[in-house]
Structures are given as structure tokens and as C-alpha cells.
């Protein structure tokens, strides 16, 4: 029986396939994280603008006052601040931040695998060039 060596053609196809798969996964992961970050940022900005409209930031002027005035009025000021917070926007921004954290947690193993594949692909490219 003839001796064959198909290692080179097989591995060339494997490398091509893996390069395509890895790049696709990184692209999808990056776009997903970017979209989630943008959504969280938008809702945070929206919350900040609502606070500006209501002049809620003016409550922080208390911090410029004397110690005695601060200790007397800080609880009331804090209560008003929390009442005026746009809760729905902050809730959504918070939920999106949690989603980003969970995404990183659940993809931890996959990211390790992808990182290893990219290192091996880079080593092979270096060997070839």
C-alpha cells in the first residue's frame, strides 16, 4: 500500500477554517459588548439629563456648606436626591451592565479557547513567513 502524507493539505484547510471561525466569533462578541455598552451609556446619559432638567445636581451645593449644616440636612437632601432619580433609566442601565458582566462570565472558557487558537494561528503564520 502506498504511503501518503496528507498532513499539509489537511492542516492548511484546518487553519483556514479556524481563522475564519475565530475571527467571526471575535467579531460577534465585540459587536455584542459594544452594543450593550452603548445602550448602558445612553440610558446613563438620559438619567443624567433628567437630573439636569430637574436641577437635582443643585442638591450637591450642600457639600459647600459648613459641617454642622451638612450633618443636619444631609439625610433630607439624600432622600430628595433618590426620589428624583430617574429609576427606570438607571434600572435599564444597571440591567445592561449585569448582562455585560454575565456575558464575560459565561464566555470565559470560550475566550480562553479562542485566545489559545489565535496564539497557535499566529505561531503558524510566523513559521510560514
Amino acid at each position: 500500500m502506498k504511503t501518503i502524507d496528507l498532513t499539509k493539505p489537511v492542516m492548511e484547510q484546518v487553519v483556514r477554517l479556524e481563522r475564519k471561525r475565530t475571527r467571526r466569533w471575535i467579531r460577534i462578541f465585540s459587536v455584542t459588548v459594544a452594543i450593550l455598552l452603548i445602550v448602558a451609556a445612553l440610558f446613563l446619559v438620559r438619567a443624567a439629563l433628567r437630573l439636569s432638567e430637574r436641577h437635582t445636581w443643585d442638591l450637591f451645593a450642600l457639600l459647600m456648606e459648613d459641617k454642622e449644616i451638612i450633618s443636619e440636612f444631609w439625610q433630607d437632601t439624600a432622600m430628595i436626591f433618590f426620589e428624583e432619580l430617574p429609576k427606570s433609566s438607571l434600572l435599564i442601565a444597571g440591567a445592561v451592565a449585569v448582562a455585560i458582566a454575565l456575558l464575560f462570565v459565561f464566555t470565559a472558557k470560550k475566550r480562553t479557547v479562542v485566545r489559545r487558537k489565535m496564539q497557535e494561528l499566529a505561531k503558524r503564520e510566523k513559521k510560514q513567513s
Binding site: 500500500m1 504511503t3 496528507l6 492542516m11 487553519v15 479556524e18 485566545r115 489559545r116 497557535e120 503558524r124
Partner: peptide, 24 residues
């Protein structure tokens, strides 16, 4: 499965001849 392409190359080298005989 953990990301090693080199390990796959070893498997290819190990089985290609036997597989060729079988497929032939």
C-alpha cells in the same frame, strides 16, 4: 477541544495512513 491546533496535527499524522488503507 481546548484550542490546540497542534494536537489535531498529531492526530492527523497518527491516523492518516490507516484511514487511507481503510477508505481505499
Amino acid at each position: 477541544q481546548e484550542g490546540s491546533i497542534t494536537a489535531y496535527e498529531i492526530l492527523v499524522k497518527r491516523y492518516q495512513q490507516r484511514l487511507f488503507a481503510f477508505v481505499y
